[in-house]
Amino acid sequence: MFMGDILSCANKTKIRNEIKLHPQYNRIYDRGHTYWTGALQDGRDRGDSPYYCPVGWKRYSFHVCDNFHEKVKGWCICYHGTKFSFGLSILLSGLKPAAVIAHGQGIYASPSIIYVSHPRYSEVREISLSEQSSFIKRGKYVQFVLECRVHPKYRKVIGCETLGADNTIIDPNINNKIIEWVIDNNNKDIVDFNDPDASIICSGLMMRVTDNHPMFLPESHWWGQRASGQKCNIIYD
């Protein structure tokens, strides 16, 4: 997700924070912050797909509606990667059906944030010194992913990965054969998040900032060849 330069992103996010963000539910997911192992067992109904800790990401929660937990009861958490140039238009308007339809027509998402963090889905942006701000104080690279909710009845396809990972394990919690979802767009050109009958809604913005290219993170080993000896750390402030 991105709209112009990093500073522009910060300014526009501040505006959204005043009207639609829900800071009470902002989270940092990692040891020492919000963290759990295995599928989360907190008594909430998130449909038929387990919810695993999105370690290494910071979540900015959106105010969807006043009765959010009632509205999304039984709705699964999934993720949608995006390009920087598309980000603001997605947040303000909604999601379009995919142009590349390996598993058929619809909106593509995944229960795995590790999968959608691949650069094909979630663009990696280098942060210049001039673009650093109070929004991103440190770090050299940034990625954004949309956290979404979808009811299982709108999930048309549960399919395999399409990035050529073959037998390489992408996400230790989610099998490669069930890592891509196709969501029914109900014949709409854009699924508006504000539509009460929307098949998918956006509940948060996930951000990952690192001090080196994220290809060097341990969880990115499946991206392909990379130089040996390189390290990467996640930055939370």
Rank of each mutant, 00 (worst) to 15 (best):
G47F: 00
T162K: 11
I170L: 08
Y236P: 11
E70S: 11
G32Q: 01
T82N: 02
W181G: 07
W75G: 07
H213C: 11
I136K: 01
D45E: 05
C78N: 11
A165H: 01
K14Y: 08
H22I: 14
A39I: 07
R208G: 03
G106M: 13
D5S: 15
D211I: 06
N176E: 13
W75H: 08
E180V: 15
G87R: 00
D166N: 12
Y236M: 11
G74D: 03
M3K: 10
N176H: 01
I179H: 05
T13Q: 02
Q132E: 05
L91M: 09
K153V: 04
C76N: 15
F135E: 00
M207N: 01
Y108K: 01
L40Y: 06
A98L: 00
G38S: 04
S117C: 15
L217A: 09
E126P: 07
K153W: 07
I136G: 05
S61H: 07
E219G: 02
L91P: 00
G87Q: 00
A99P: 01
I235D: 09
K177L: 12
R59D: 05
S228H: 12
I170S: 01
S130D: 11
I28N: 13
F216N: 12
V209L: 07
I183D: 12
H22N: 15
V72H: 13
Q230F: 10
C148K: 03
N185Q: 15
Q41G: 05
C65Y: 06
M215C: 15
Y25H: 12
H221C: 13
D192G: 06
I158T: 13
R226F: 05
D189E: 14
A10S: 14
P152C: 03
I101V: 14
R138I: 07
P119I: 06
Y51M: 09
T210L: 02
A109L: 04
G74R: 03
G56T: 00
I179T: 06
V157Q: 10
A10R: 05
D42T: 02
L146G: 04
Q41T: 15
A39T: 02
W36L: 11
K188V: 04
Y154L: 04
R46C: 06
V150N: 03
F68M: 11
S89K: 07
G43E: 04
L88N: 00
T13P: 02
G159W: 06
N67S: 12
K188T: 08
I127D: 07
Y60L: 08
L146N: 09
G87A: 03
C160L: 06
H221F: 11
I179E: 02
E180F: 10
H22F: 15
N212M: 09
R27Q: 09
L91Y: 02
K231S: 15
R208Q: 14
Q225R: 14
K177G: 07
C53V: 04
E70K: 15
A39W: 05
G43I: 01
K156D: 09
K20L: 12
I19E: 11
G106A: 09
I101C: 14
C9F: 15
N11C: 00
G224M: 04
L21H: 14
V100K: 03
V55I: 13
R16L: 13
S134Y: 03
K177V: 11
S133I: 00
R16I: 09
K177C: 10
S61M: 10
